[in-house]
Simulated assay, not measured.
Amino acid sequence: MIKFLDLQKINAPYKAQFQQKLETVINNSQYILGTEVAEFESNFAKFCGTTFCLGTANGLDALSLILKAYIHLGRLQVGDEVLVPGVTFIATAQAVVNVGLEPVFVEPDALSYNVTAETLEPQINSNVKAIVVVHVYGQLADMPSLEALASKHNLLLIEDAAQAHGAVCPSNGKRAGSFGNAAAFSFYPTKNLGALGDAGAITTNDLALYECVRKMRNYGSSEKYRHEIYGVNSRLDEIQAAFLNVKLPFLDVANSARQSIAARYLNEVKNDNIKLPKIAHKNAHVFYVFAIRVANRPDFSAYLEANKIEYVIHYPTPIHKQIAFSKYKNLNLPITEAIHASVVSIPISPIMEYEQVSDVIKALNAY
Rank of each mutant, 00 (worst) to 15 (best):
I313M: 11
V104L: 09
F187Q: 04
C53K: 00
Q20A: 15
V360F: 09
S112W: 06
N271P: 01
F300G: 14
R75A: 08
G79I: 09
T317N: 08
A12L: 10
L60P: 01
L67I: 02
V106F: 01
N154H: 12
Q77G: 11
A184W: 00
M216G: 03
F325H: 08
N332E: 14
P318S: 04
S345P: 01
C169E: 15
L146T: 05
S145A: 15
V253L: 13
H153Q: 05
T336A: 04
E41V: 01
S260T: 12
G180A: 09
Q19I: 03
T92Y: 09
Y265H: 02
D272L: 08
N283Q: 15
F300Q: 14
N172H: 07
D206F: 11
E211W: 06
F325Y: 07
C48K: 02
I351V: 15
V128S: 10
V312P: 02
P298D: 08
A295V: 10
A57F: 03
Y354L: 09
K329E: 10
V269C: 06
L331A: 04
V286D: 09
Q163I: 00
I2V: 13
S29Y: 12
M216Q: 14
I2S: 13
N233P: 00
A242H: 01
A45S: 15
D6I: 08
I26M: 15
H153G: 09
A199V: 09
A242L: 08
N296I: 07
E121S: 15
I309C: 08
F300K: 05
I239E: 12
I292V: 15
A164N: 03
E36D: 14
A366S: 15
D80W: 04
L149Y: 07
I351H: 14
G34Y: 02
G74C: 06
G194M: 00
H320M: 05
V133A: 02
L149H: 04
